[in-house]
Every structure is written in structure tokens, then in C-alpha cells.
């Protein structure tokens, strides 16, 4: 078995200092304390394209934007039942993020799969933000345990439960993995490059399809996230 124990574990505030962010290294394991809010296409469209007022003080209350919607229910008495919490793939939100980071002052973007290192260098680094990935993408129950309470659910009538802006109070919530650092490097791209060295051997004894597709590539260093 690999040595998972040699990875560095870090507790981090959801309103982190510039020093704490600069200290993070690719592959560090992070646990979060403080308020975190969910925002995905519904929130971005409403806040940026429809210019609705963001119903929180950002980034004072929270600088942690989670690409997620929880498995949760709003009860008839207005209380919330929250079970598991898992991220959704972030690359789909790239078109809104430059404006969102500038507007919200988010320092931590948390999600699934990360973005490209070009995205990090273009608008994460100038805004002092880094990207944290959830682990395995299925650790919903572990992350659910890290949520002490649901503080608020904004815009659920307009956007539905899955797209609403959930404000979660977190304590030692994790694990997350540092995917981008303060220089805009990407852990996924580092791993991709290592794996690519072996790929030509794996593909020996295979052949390209007789019927081609438009836009097809045989360059296996490419990614599908665009």
C-alpha cells in the first residue's frame, strides 16, 4: 500500500490569510473551519448575468465558494435536513469565475476536478485564490459530518434546492486536496504528465477506429475539460 501518511495535513480558515494560502503545497490535505457557501451555475447566472444582489457579505463572512449542492431537504417548518455533501465538476463554471472571483473576493474555490493551470494563472493568482478538490468525489458522508449547521439557504425558491446558495457552518470539514498553489500550478496536470509517459506502452496492440469522428485527436496528453 502507498504511504498516505506522508501527506501533510493542514487546518485552514474559510477566511484564510494570504500567508496561510502561500504556505499551501500541491497535494496537502486540508480541513476547513468557518462558513462556506455553495455556488454553481444557478447562483452565477443570477448574481452575474441578472445582477441580483448577493445575499451575503463577501468575502468577510466567507471566502470559500463550494461547487456543490447537498443531499438535503427544506422541512415544512423552515428547518433543514442535510445528509451528504459532495462537489460537482468545476470546469463547467470557468466562464463565470473570473468575474465571480473579482466580485466575491473568494480565496478558496472548492469542487471536483479542478480547472486548467491556465485558468489558475489567468484569474486565480491575480485574485490570490487557490483551488481545493474534494477527495475521491464520493466522500459525501465524511464532508456531511463536517457541517455543524445550515446557516441559511438563499434563492431556493428561485433556483430550487440543488442550485440554491447554501451557507454551511463547518468545523474540521474535510478532507480536501490542494489542487492549485499560489503560483497557479495544478496537481492534476502534474499527475497527468507522469501518467502520459507510460501511455504509449498501454496502447500497444490497439488500433484507431475505422470510422473517424470530426474533431478527434490521438494526442493522449489532451484533456476533455477544454
Amino acid at each position: 500500500m502507498g504511504n498516505a501518511g506522508k501527506l501533510r495535513k493542514v487546518r485552514l480558515s474559510t477566511t484564510p490569510s494570504a500567508e496561510a494560502l502561500a504556505d499551501l503545497r500541491l497535494g496537502d490535505i486540508v480541513y476547513l473551519d468557518g462558513l462556506i457557501y455553495t455556488a454553481r451555475e444557478g447562483v452565477y447566472m443570477r448574481a452575474l448575468e441578472e445582477s441580483a444582489n448577493i445575499p451575503m457579505e463577501l468575502p468577510q463572512q466567507s471566502a470559500a465558494n463550494f461547487h456543490c449542492s447537498p443531499a438535503a431537504t427544506i422541512n415544512s417548518d423552515g428547518t433543514f435536513t442535510l445528509g451528504a455533501v459532495t462537489a460537482t465538476a468545476s470546469f463547467r463554471f470557468a466562464k463565470w469565475l473570473p468575474e465571480w472571483l473579482a466580485k466575491s473576493g473568494a480565496k478558496l474555490v472548492i469542487g471536483k476536478g479542478g480547472m486548467s493551470s491556465q485558468d489558475y494563472k489567468d484569474y486565480f493568482v491575480p485574485n490570490g485564490a487557490i483551488y481545493l478538490s474534494t477527495v475521491g468525489y464520493g466522500t459525501g458522508a465524511l464532508l456531511g459530518r463536517g457541517v455543524k449547521s445550515v446557516k441559511e439557504v438563499h434563492w431556493h425558491e428561485e433556483l430550487g434546492i440543488a442550485q440554491a446558495m447554501w451557507v454551511l457552518e463547518c468545523e474540521n470539514m474535510g478532507p480536501f486536496i490542494v489542487e492549485s498553489d499560489s503560483k497557479g500550478n495544478s496537481l492534476f496536470e502534474r499527475e497527468n504528465a507522469k501518467i502520459a509517459e507510460n501511455l504509449h506502452k498501454v496502447y500497444e496492440g490497439t488500433r484507431p477506429a475505422t470510422l473517424k469522428r470530426f474533431g478527434e485527436t490521438d494526442d493522449r496528453t489532451d484533456e476533455v475539460i477544454g
Binding site: 451528504a84 468525489y137 464520493g138 459525501g140 458522508a141 456531511g144
Partner: peptide, 10 residues
């Protein structure tokens, strides 16, 4: 143990 969904995306 908690009887909660394994993954938040169910």
C-alpha cells in the same frame, strides 16, 4: 453509521 448518503450527488 450516520445513515446518511455516501455521496452528496445521489
Amino acid at each position: 453509521e450516520d445513515r446518511r448518503a455516501m455521496c452528496g450527488d445521489t
